[in-house]
Protein backbone atom coordinates (compact mmCIF):
# COMPACT_ATOMS: atom_id res chain seq x y z
CA UNK A 1 0.00 0.00 0.00
CA UNK A 2 2.72 2.44 1.02
CA UNK A 3 4.85 1.33 -1.90
CA UNK A 4 1.94 1.92 -4.24
CA UNK A 5 1.37 5.39 -2.82
CA UNK A 6 5.03 6.36 -3.17
CA UNK A 7 5.08 5.06 -6.73
CA UNK A 8 1.99 7.14 -7.48
CA UNK A 9 3.51 10.32 -6.03
CA UNK A 10 6.78 9.73 -7.94
CA UNK A 11 4.87 9.37 -11.19
CA UNK A 12 2.72 12.49 -10.80
CA UNK A 13 5.06 14.87 -8.96
CA UNK A 14 6.76 16.27 -12.08
CA UNK A 15 3.63 16.66 -14.23
CA UNK A 16 1.97 18.36 -11.25
CA UNK A 17 4.86 20.84 -10.81
CA UNK A 18 4.98 21.61 -14.54
CA UNK A 19 1.26 22.38 -14.46
CA UNK A 20 0.89 24.00 -11.04
CA UNK A 21 3.88 26.40 -10.97
CA UNK A 22 3.10 28.31 -14.20
CA UNK A 23 -0.68 28.39 -13.54
CA UNK A 24 -0.22 29.65 -9.97
CA UNK A 25 2.34 32.22 -11.14
CA UNK A 26 0.02 33.46 -13.90
CA UNK A 27 -2.78 33.97 -11.39
CA UNK A 28 -0.36 35.99 -9.24
CA UNK A 29 0.33 38.23 -12.24
CA UNK A 30 3.73 36.89 -13.31
CA UNK A 31 4.62 37.14 -17.02
CA UNK A 32 5.23 33.42 -17.11
CA UNK A 33 6.79 33.05 -20.55
CA UNK A 34 9.22 35.93 -20.19
CA UNK A 35 10.25 34.92 -16.69
CA UNK A 36 10.76 31.32 -17.80
CA UNK A 37 13.18 32.45 -20.53
CA UNK A 38 15.02 34.68 -18.08
CA UNK A 39 15.62 31.78 -15.68
CA UNK A 40 16.34 29.25 -18.41
CA UNK A 41 19.21 31.34 -19.77
CA UNK A 42 21.33 30.36 -16.79
CA UNK A 43 20.97 26.63 -17.48
CA UNK A 44 23.40 26.52 -20.38
CA UNK A 45 26.16 28.36 -18.53
CA UNK A 46 25.94 26.12 -15.48
CA UNK A 47 25.99 22.88 -17.50
CA UNK A 48 28.97 24.00 -19.60
CA UNK A 49 30.89 25.17 -16.55
CA UNK A 50 30.96 21.55 -15.34
CA UNK A 51 33.06 20.24 -18.23
CA UNK A 52 36.60 20.80 -16.87
CA UNK A 53 35.68 19.43 -13.43
CA UNK A 54 33.97 16.35 -14.85
CA UNK A 55 36.71 15.61 -17.36
CA UNK A 56 39.40 15.88 -14.66
CA UNK A 57 37.60 13.54 -12.28
CA UNK A 58 36.28 11.01 -14.80
CA UNK A 59 39.67 10.65 -16.50
CA UNK A 60 41.42 9.89 -13.19
CA UNK A 61 38.73 7.37 -12.19
CA UNK A 62 38.72 5.83 -15.69
CA UNK A 63 42.48 5.26 -15.64
CA UNK A 64 42.38 3.83 -12.12
CA UNK A 65 39.58 1.45 -13.00
CA UNK A 66 40.53 0.25 -16.48
CA UNK A 67 44.24 -0.21 -15.76
CA UNK A 68 43.48 -2.90 -13.20
CA UNK A 69 44.69 -0.76 -10.30
CA UNK A 70 41.24 -0.87 -8.76
CA UNK A 71 41.10 -4.69 -8.89
CA UNK A 72 44.54 -4.76 -7.27
CA UNK A 73 43.45 -2.53 -4.40
CA UNK A 74 40.46 -4.80 -3.83
CA UNK A 75 42.85 -7.76 -3.49
CA UNK A 76 45.11 -5.73 -1.19
CA UNK A 77 42.39 -5.03 1.36
CA UNK A 78 40.69 -8.43 1.02
CA UNK A 79 42.64 -10.07 3.91
CA UNK A 80 41.52 -7.29 6.27
CA UNK A 81 37.85 -7.46 5.30
CA UNK A 82 37.87 -11.27 5.38
CA UNK A 83 39.29 -11.12 8.88
CA UNK A 84 36.34 -8.88 9.81
CA UNK A 85 33.90 -11.39 8.33
CA UNK A 86 32.78 -9.18 5.44
CA UNK A 87 31.67 -11.27 2.42
CA UNK A 88 34.42 -10.95 -0.23
CA UNK A 89 31.96 -11.12 -3.13
CA UNK A 90 30.70 -7.56 -2.49
CA UNK A 91 34.14 -5.99 -1.90
CA UNK A 92 34.60 -4.80 -5.53
CA UNK A 93 31.16 -3.17 -5.29
CA UNK A 94 32.10 -1.37 -2.06
CA UNK A 95 35.20 0.12 -3.73
CA UNK A 96 33.39 1.03 -6.96
CA UNK A 97 30.31 2.57 -5.32
CA UNK A 98 31.76 6.02 -4.44
CA UNK A 99 33.80 6.26 -7.68
CA UNK A 100 31.40 5.41 -10.50
CA UNK A 101 27.61 5.04 -10.43
CA UNK A 102 27.46 3.22 -13.76
CA UNK A 103 30.34 0.91 -12.82
CA UNK A 104 28.70 0.06 -9.48
CA UNK A 105 25.37 -0.71 -11.12
CA UNK A 106 27.21 -3.03 -13.52
CA UNK A 107 28.79 -4.97 -10.64
CA UNK A 108 25.47 -5.11 -8.75
CA UNK A 109 23.65 -6.47 -11.80
CA UNK A 110 26.35 -9.10 -12.28
CA UNK A 111 26.20 -10.16 -8.61
CA UNK A 112 22.40 -10.40 -8.73
CA UNK A 113 22.51 -12.50 -11.88
CA UNK A 114 25.31 -14.76 -10.61
CA UNK A 115 24.04 -15.42 -7.09
CA UNK A 116 20.30 -14.81 -7.67
CA UNK A 117 18.30 -11.76 -6.57
CA UNK A 118 16.92 -13.53 -3.47
CA UNK A 119 20.28 -14.89 -2.26
CA UNK A 120 22.17 -13.27 0.62
CA UNK A 121 24.71 -11.73 -1.78
CA UNK A 122 21.94 -10.56 -4.13
CA UNK A 123 20.06 -8.83 -1.33
CA UNK A 124 23.23 -7.32 0.11
CA UNK A 125 24.37 -5.97 -3.27
CA UNK A 126 20.89 -4.51 -3.89
CA UNK A 127 20.91 -2.76 -0.51
CA UNK A 128 24.44 -1.41 -1.01
CA UNK A 129 23.65 -0.08 -4.47
CA UNK A 130 20.45 1.70 -3.42
CA UNK A 131 21.50 3.17 -0.10
CA UNK A 132 24.14 5.70 -1.15
CA UNK A 133 25.05 7.95 -4.06
CA UNK A 134 28.28 8.23 -6.05
CA UNK A 135 30.28 10.49 -3.73
CA UNK A 136 33.01 11.59 -6.16
CA UNK A 137 30.51 12.32 -8.89
CA UNK A 138 28.12 14.32 -6.71
CA UNK A 139 30.96 16.42 -5.28
CA UNK A 140 32.47 17.04 -8.73
CA UNK A 141 29.18 18.11 -10.32
CA UNK A 142 27.83 20.21 -7.43
CA UNK A 143 31.06 21.99 -6.55
CA UNK A 144 32.03 22.29 -10.23
CA UNK A 145 28.81 24.12 -11.08
CA UNK A 146 29.81 27.05 -8.82
CA UNK A 147 33.58 26.90 -9.30
CA UNK A 148 34.48 25.53 -5.86
CA UNK A 149 37.96 23.96 -5.91
CA UNK A 150 38.67 23.56 -2.22
CA UNK A 151 36.28 20.96 -0.82
CA UNK A 152 37.34 21.22 2.85
CA UNK A 153 36.08 18.12 4.68
CA UNK A 154 33.29 17.30 2.18
CA UNK A 155 35.14 14.31 0.66
CA UNK A 156 35.96 12.83 4.07
CA UNK A 157 32.34 13.14 5.15
CA UNK A 158 31.12 11.49 1.94
CA UNK A 159 33.58 8.60 2.14
CA UNK A 160 33.01 8.02 5.86
CA UNK A 161 29.28 7.86 5.16
CA UNK A 162 29.93 5.34 2.36
CA UNK A 163 31.89 3.03 4.67
CA UNK A 164 29.20 3.34 7.35
CA UNK A 165 26.41 2.63 4.87
CA UNK A 166 28.32 -0.43 3.64
CA UNK A 167 28.71 -1.81 7.17
CA UNK A 168 25.09 -0.94 8.02
CA UNK A 169 23.94 -2.81 4.88
CA UNK A 170 25.82 -5.95 5.96
CA UNK A 171 24.42 -5.70 9.47
CA UNK A 172 20.78 -5.20 8.49
CA UNK A 173 20.71 -7.72 5.62
CA UNK A 174 22.25 -10.38 7.90
CA UNK A 175 19.81 -9.47 10.66
CA UNK A 176 16.65 -9.46 8.51
CA UNK A 177 17.27 -12.20 5.96
CA UNK A 178 19.79 -14.64 7.38
Amino acid sequence: MIEFLIGYVSKWAIPFLIFFIPVFAYIRGVNVYEVFIEGAEEGFKIAIKLIPYLVAMLVAIGIFRNSGAMAMSVEAIRPITEFLGIPGEVLPLAIMRPLSGGGALGITTELINTYGPDSFIGRLASTMQGSTDTTFFVLTVYFGSVGIRRYRHALWVGLLADVTTFLASIYIVTRIFA
Binding site: V32, V35, A40, G43, V55
Partner: peptide, 22 residues
Protein backbone atom coordinates in the same frame (compact mmCIF):
# COMPACT_ATOMS: atom_id res chain seq x y z
CA UNK B 1 31.97 11.04 -21.17
CA UNK B 2 32.46 14.19 -19.07
CA UNK B 3 31.53 16.41 -22.01
CA UNK B 4 28.58 14.20 -22.89
CA UNK B 5 27.20 14.41 -19.35
CA UNK B 6 27.44 18.21 -19.39
CA UNK B 7 25.67 18.38 -22.72
CA UNK B 8 22.94 16.01 -21.55
CA UNK B 9 22.43 18.30 -18.59
CA UNK B 10 21.93 21.43 -20.73
CA UNK B 11 18.33 20.65 -21.64
CA UNK B 12 17.37 19.59 -18.13
CA UNK B 13 19.04 22.58 -16.49
CA UNK B 14 17.55 25.06 -18.96
CA UNK B 15 14.06 23.69 -18.48
CA UNK B 16 14.10 23.38 -14.69
CA UNK B 17 15.78 26.70 -14.05
CA UNK B 18 13.07 28.31 -16.19
CA UNK B 19 10.33 26.65 -14.14
CA UNK B 20 12.13 27.50 -10.90
CA UNK B 21 12.35 31.18 -11.80
CA UNK B 22 8.63 31.22 -12.51
Amino acid sequence: LGVKYSFDLIGLMTFWLGIMRV
